[in-house]
Amino acid sequence: MARNRTFILYWLALVGFVLLPQLISVKYYIHLCVLALIWVIAAQGQNLIQGYTGYVSIVQAGFMGIGAYSTALMGMHFDLPVWLTIILAPFVTAFFALLTGYPSLRVKGHYFAIVTLAFNMVIFIVLMNFHDLTQGEAGITGIPKPGGKDALFNWRDRETYYYFVLIIAALMTGLAALIVRSRIGQILVAIRQNEDLVGAVGIAAWKYKLFAFVTSAMFAGLAGAIYAHYQSFINPEIFGIAQSLDAILAVIIGGSGTIAGPIIGAFFVVFLPEYLRFADSFRLILYGLVLVLATIFMPRGIAGIARDLMEKRRGRT
């Protein structure tokens, strides 16, 4: 019964997202919605490692960068079609995630966070300084949109891209839900709750942690690739540590360890800075304050609070 009700809620949300561009008249807001949907993909990945497994990874934006640059560079140098490079980008990201995940998951808790953060710094430094490949700070321009000249849809149109990203975001959310509901997902939650116990019953926790980390990186790589083709321009600036913190914030604000959380959180981190524009340089302070207060007073996020309210009402009737 409860499961049916959540299911209906998800379908309603999906219908809402499909209708959204028809309700919004300002083009800029559609642009923000596309960005938010891209963030939904990255945040769902972040949620797998942070929300379910309980390991804070601070490299999500860095992985988005690897995805974005790999799709752009593969298209430029190997002349591959856009759809293929978008599909390949998450696998390139996964390779790098495996390389860093294996040693860094040997350390527990906070230390994993620090190693991933250091890795994000490394990604940023390489993107900035490896001029021959990444063109440094200037970035890469003219990344082609999906679909050739005689494509079925007009990909230059924001609305078309909105629906494209919506489909992918919905699919990835579905995939995240499948992973979470599977045996693997249950083990991930068990690791979060008591890692020693997981080891004690004979499960090799590190394999599952590595799986969660690499999968979360693939989500980010895909998000980055889609971003690159949407903006047609990328530079290292948006793949730094600050953006990785945004991914963490999205999961916390939305509700970590829930499927709805990252969706709410992603829209939050894209739209909140827009509304905080008036605050200008105070933005960073306010943003930090929101993060601190949210963690202290609503550690279960918006989705968690909503669920509590729903259960309270059900209890009353």
Binding site: V56, L245, G288, L291
Partner: peptide, 24 residues
């Protein structure tokens, strides 16, 4: 007394705040 992950996220938020204050 909460999960350790919460303290870490508070630390990240504090970092943003102090960086923002430095900037300001």
């Amino acid at each position: 007394d909460a999960n350790h992950i919460n303290a870490f996220i508070v630390a990240l938020g504090l970092t943003m705040m102090v960086e923002g204050i430095n900037l300001e």
